[in-house]
Amino acid sequence: MDEYILIFRHEDGTKVASPDQLQAWMKQTMDWIGGIAAQNKFISGTGLPFDGAKVVGHNNIVTNGPFGDIKETIGGFIIVKADSVDEAVEFAKGSPVLQGDGNTVEVRKIAKRDGTH
């Protein structure tokens, strides 16, 4: 069994959702993660609030954001256990993030700490 990270990519981080939308979205997200956890396949995860986000660039230039040049940004991630990348992809398909047009979930295998990756 390998570990995979599912990274939520939002097309436009500047979009602001209403509190009601946020609440509904939170519930859906929790139900989605709960379904993975019920299979004993959830490891960890967190949301990444956009407030106060900074980007440190070349020559240590700090900008507010990740908005500006690049609009796309990361809204959070979860780490899951899966037998294959295909199983991890099946988990990703259930993510409520994908209800937003242009949003994506990137699925990446976590490097093993035994030097084999």
């Binding site: 929790m30 139900d31 993660i33 709960g34 956890a37 019920a38 959830f42």
Partner: peptide, 18 residues
Amino acid sequence: VLQLFNQLLMIGYSPIVA
């Protein structure tokens, strides 16, 4: 109740909670 069970599973898995 569903939200609470979701959270409980995220803290730790158990078949009966699932």
